[in-house]
Design a protein around this nucleic acid. Structure first.
Lengths: 352, 352
DNA sequence: CAGCGCTACTGTATCGTTACAGATTTGTAT
DNA sequence: ATACAAATCTGTAACGATACAGTAGCGCTG
């Protein structure tokens, strides 16, 4: 107890602030380096020493200083969620953030939200993160078939995951909802209800899941023998008013659709409004199947058939995938596709 | 050009990575300290020197290393948004995050989302932030009259802002929606429609805006001479199913309410479901006024009178307030109350 | 022309951590 | 004994920025 108390932090106890390695070094009589290595379970530190260090660290509630680690190693312990400021009205951001943070809670990672305005370059936040080393991993959404963000991140070697897939021959982590399947099953459902003239409210053409959803829709039309009614000039990125007005016009036309597949929950609302503005009744003049991120429609318009896309789960998957990527797991193992499921007709218990 | 090129970063150009003060020092032939001070416009640096430094810094795209600044000064340039993982179904988080980031975009601040699960201590994330110095400012919601988080943050001197007010004699920044006024105007509206037996779906009693909303409701009852129907055991934090079932029971009772004030948009959905389950019709057997965070209800149930609470604006106000607090502005000047407004009856253009 | 004060600039130490290159001790083979 | 390896532990430097305590040069006063 005295033969060992020689050098070490010759300086007195660091002070009253939060504990650092120096504090532990002082308390254990060890060198700062030793303490550092002991806490990372390095092989050249004695078992008993590690034990002592860990005990003291725990007792005094030591938590490594993020700035110190970051400065020295470049590791930020930050995951960046890159978002458009102009998010959909039905706000998928909430459950997404919740899902992500649920996973991050058990890790040293913090979630930083990095926005970009749609009027600007979607690459801007990516460049910022790359240039400033602001994060260890990135989560991006609104993925395009040839996504420049994916190209840039891959080239620069920064781990990331996309919400949605790409078609650029690059193997990378992703999580996606099976929109092909969704549209296919939606068509099946409508045809089973005797509908034959179907319309699709689709995603904007530049996003990857546009072609997925269209493909599923068209495959369904073929397999179940129904016809498509064109609604091509309108997509889920249009305003609710635009969608409603366009759909009202369509429903007032000579040969209106009798089955509707809506690629978004908020779009569905506008479609319903348009349909009713044309003096038609949902469930009578037409049936509708919609993808939804919440329980809303099911409560207010039970006549709509809904397929639930669980964004919270998506957030969890995305978070797990980026971390996996950071940890060096092969990208192939970090890809997942969630299957659509029809929501149970009536009300199951809802959280909170 | 040579008489000055004496000492300075004797070491060669920092290297190919991102530029640091050293890079600029090398390029300008100045000392690192001088460059640092020049960039902060310190008074002891010559005007021309500052100009040169600024020019070079801009040219090479210098951005201060956050870890360096943080380690040395303790300034994190982080604002922490503290959230419950169990957010309401109608997700106010999305627009809130958008509003906050809109303001932070013009500042050096990053937004970090710090969650806590409702099952745990709401103080935990606050303690974490205080103990680790994780943020320069904090945004908290679900504010209580005697909020331990406010007490702790005040005591420790960490800038913060609350979404909602407190009643603890502490002057602090806040942004709030005028729920008193909302409930009062809601009662007025219902009475003007000939309704006399009113029910309130209120916030949970431990939150501050519970008493605000109740006070407005009761003042309205007095001023406009209507009666209250008790629905006390249920509040907006209950599940949709619980609310619906309870409300169905109430509507089937001997003397059901004919006017409904809903303190939340998602609650309104459950109330409508309950009312209809009791074979009543909204607009005929009863009218309803609801506070809403989106355009949903207005589109799907135009018979509901809605008052819009703009969460995005709230996010902006909150962000401005924390930053103001950090900058040392007096708390009194960082308090704001947003007034409820009835939404225009039909559809105005909706964003995206 | 010594001394003072001012302007403009600079070196050193430091924040907390880790990479790296030792240093010390002990045990073992020779 | 001597050398050598293995097992443990340690000091120094560095990441990038800033606080602080200078220093150098200049003009002016008396």
């Amino acid at each position: 107890m005295d033969s060992k108390t020689k050098n070490r932090p010759l300086t007195p106890p660091p002070d009253g602030g939060r504990p650092t390695l120096k504090t532990i070094a002082f308390m254990t009589g060890l060198g700062i380096t030793t303490v550092s290595r002991a806490l990372k379970d390095a092989p050249d530190i004695g078992a008993e020493t590690k034990e002592r260090v860990r005990l003291v660290a725990k007792q005094i509630g030591y938590q490594p200083n993020r700035a110190g680690v970051r400065l020295r190693t470049g590791k930020t312990n930050v995951i960046s969620l890159v978002l458009t400021l102009d998010e959909e009205i039905m706000g998928i951001t909430s459950p997404m953030v919740v899902g992500i943070t649920e996973v991050l809670a058990g890790t040293p990672y913090h979630l930083v939200v990095t926005p970009y305005s749609a009027t600007k370059d979607a690459l801007a936040p990516i460049r910022y993160i790359l240039d400033t080393g602001a994060a260890d991993g990135v989560i991006i959404s609104r993925t395009e078939p040839h996504d420049p963000r994916v190209a840039l991140l891959t080239e620069r070697g920064l781990p990331f995951v996309t919400h949605g897939r790409t078609e650029m021959g690059v193997v990378h982590p992703y999580h996606d909802f099976d929109n092909e399947r969704f549209a296919y099953e939606a068509v099946r459902e409508l045809v089973e209800r005797g509908r034959k003239r179907l319309v699709l409210l689709e995603p904007p053409p530049h996003l990857t899941f546009y072609s997925h959803m269209r493909a599923g829709f068209e495959r369904g039309l073929r397999d179940f023998q129904a016809d498509a009614v064109s609604f091509h000039h309108i997509n889920i990125d249009h305003t609710l008013v635009e969608i409603r007005d366009a759909f009202e016009t369509l429903m007032r036309s000579d040969d209106p659709p009798d089955g509707i597949v809506s690629g978004s929950g908020s779009g569905a609302i506008a479609l319903i409004a348009g349909l009713e503005a044309a003096n038609k009744t949902l469930g009578k003049d037409a049936d509708m199947v919609s993808k939804v991120p919440s329980d809303f429609l099911r409560w207010l318009r039970p006549e709509v058939v809904t397929m639930y896309e669980d964004i919270r789960v998506a957030g969890r998957e995305l978070a797990k995938a980026v971390i996996g990527h950071i940890d060096g797991q092969p990208s192939e193992t970090l890809q997942s596709l969630s299957q659509p499921e029809f929501q149970s007709a009536v009300q199951v218990s809802i959280k909170r």
